[in-house]
Nucleic acid binder design. Sequence first.
DNA 1: TTAATTGACATCAATTTAGTATCAGTTTTG
DNA 2: CAAAACTGATACTAAATTGATGTCAATTAA
Lengths: 155, 155
Amino acid sequence: MKVLTKKTDYAIRALLMLAAKKGNYVSTKTISAEQDIPYQFLRGVLQEMIRHGLITSKEGVQGGFMLEKDPDEISVKQVMEIFQGEVQVSECMFRKQICANRSHCVLRHEIMRIEQVVNDEFQKITIGGLLGKLTAAKSAKPAGNESYKSASAKP
Amino acid sequence: MKVLTKKTDYAIRALLMLAAKKGNYVSTKTISAEQDIPYQFLRGVLQEMIRHGLITSKEGVQGGFMLEKDPDEISVKQVMEIFQGEVQVSECMFRKQICANRSHCVLRHEIMRIEQVVNDEFQKITIGGLLGKLTAAKSAKPAGNESYKSASAKP
DNA sequence: TTAATTGACATCAATTTAGTATCAGTTTTG
DNA sequence: CAAAACTGATACTAAATTGATGTCAATTAA
Ligand code: FES
Ligand code: FES
């Protein structure tokens, strides 16, 4: 059972780059290269995020994408919902006879509780939070990689 | 995002029937009809459960399937693992540079915690538990449906 | 003007999930 | 015994989802 699809995965990674380089437009090409994500596929992912108001774009030379919202306001759950829809367990087990008393069903309660937990947890994870932790880990262990440094590298 | 596939769904429903009619062999035909599950598909599901030691079978007339284990020992998680494999989040985000320090990665920790929670919760739900709750709900609200009554109907 | 970009689609390939079909072997029962 | 009701094993097909590519028009900095 896979929880995160490629689209979600790529989207989060792209968002992290945008968050890291906040204030600058970053092109698909750059993200694609740095994160090793198929170019055209990534384009689709980015456009979808525009439609959902997470990022904005600028066309033409020096164009690209930029975060629209506060990184701390973008949760992994939001991204998942864009690309994978809501968490849903199973339409309804035991349709036939058993589930006459639907509102009563205990299994349903149990399983919806799990859904809730999953949702809550993914809600708590935000782009801002992730970025903070990633850069923290980075500076604690300088292993020659500088990809996600604190942005605004163009004074 | 769907958590339970048809196979898991069908498997659980079949197991519940077997648990309800414990001690008797129940045929695919019967389960298929009562639960409205495609006959041939269900056969495959049942055979897979034999291979995993959850049930046993008897061939020929009056044959069918029977629970092998205690219903309380069969968790939804076990069934899920048979038909859907382990819960896994995503191979690894940020493969390239970022994940040099893999053992260090906080995101990974967070996400594995969610995996853990999901697993724990599905582990707690057992066939026995479900059956108990279903029959309880049934007797509390007798709506003309008798499918899952207490079994051993052949004295 | 040209090169670097995004916007908007259309299309394709791969994988996973869902469902069907077939034939051989086993067991009860008339 | 022979027919009918079953499972075992396995091959196959169909549908849905996921992953990826391609194309052309529009925009913009240099
Ligand atoms: S699963 Fe349908 S009401 Fe319980
Ligand atoms: S996601 Fe790969 S180590 Fe963090």
